[in-house]
């Protein structure tokens, strides 16, 4: 399949494209404020380098979060327009899984970590096999000072996490990969594209939402005060 992959969930915009058995083309740009302006120019660059016209893309892989809310929407909104009424298979992959791919090897258990702001972390755990990956810790928000609820050995921890935090978790054998190597990367998304269990199909792209990982602040506050879920009165088209 002619595949285009994009990640807009971190400070780094990352896009990649590949024809079947072709070379991977990658472009990146740093700075979250640039994502909206640079996404399409970089997509066109990787497609051109891969020898593809936009209309020849048959598969789209998107990192669907958790991550920066605005970044998530940059990709989500663009994909909705780009794939509308076209024969394009859209598949989503967890941003945390994409991070762990930096330490992917058969048999390894890897934790993916991303900042959730206010001292909290998004964390998930995955175990890689030769041809697939399974989730050993579902993506969650980890409060400050807490340890991921994953017993047993962890081989690597990838993402935005300080060394002293990792030490407190007690995974003594884990290799820690941070910095640019720990960021989500669209080239790795292409590696994951054919790995069983890595991606999920997006069935109704029009109504699809990325995984924000947490509610809007105003919603969270309202729910704390009222002790119930925020009602969403049906909006009526007119």
């Amino acid at each position: 399949m002619n595949t285009l992959a994009l990640d807009t969930t971190s400070d780094r915009l990352s896009v990649a494209a590949r024809r079947p058995a072709g070379r991977v083309s990658v472009r990146e740009a740093t700075g979250a404020r640039q994502h909206a302006g640079l996404l399409v120019p970089l997509v066109l660059e990787v497609l051109a380098e891969a020898g593809l016209d936009p209309g020849e893309v048959t598969r789209l892989i998107v990192a669907d979060g958790p991550g920066g809310f605005t970044g998530l929407r940059v990709a989500a909104a663009w994909i909705k327009g780009f794939s509308r009424d076209r024969n394009v298979a859209v598949r989503a992959v967890s941003t945390l899984l994409v991070r762990t791919a930096a330490a992917r090897a058969p048999g390894r258990v890897v934790l993916g970590v991303a900042s959730a702001l206010r001292g909290e972390l998004y964390v998930a755990g995955y175990q890689f096999g030769a041809a697939g990956v399974s989730t050993v810790l579902e993506p969650m928000v980890l409060a400050s000072g807490h340890r991921p609820p994953l017993e047993g050995p962890v081989d690597a921890i990838v993402g935005d996490v300080a060394d002293e935090v990792v030490r407190g978790w007690g995974y003594s054998a884990a290799v820690v990969i941070g910095g640019p190597q720990g960021l989500p990367d669209a080239a790795r998304m292409l590696e994951l594209a054919d790995l069983a269990g890595a991606t999920v199909p997006v069935e109704d792209i029009g109504r699809w939402e990325p995984i924000y990982g947490r509610p809007a602040e105003a919603q969270a506050k309202w729910e704390r005060i009222h002790g119930r879920t925020l009602p969403n009165p049906a909006s009526q088209p007119g």
Partner: peptide, 28 residues
């Protein structure tokens, strides 16, 4: 077609993050 986001009535004003999320869900 105009879809009004009624959720903001609860807050007495527009909540930008909720507005953005609603647009993602409903624009297409």
């Amino acid at each position: 077609v105009i879809l009004s986001q009624d959720v903001h009535r609860i807050f007495g004003g527009v909540v930008p993050e909720l507005a953005s999320r609603e647009h993602v869900k409903t624009l297409d």
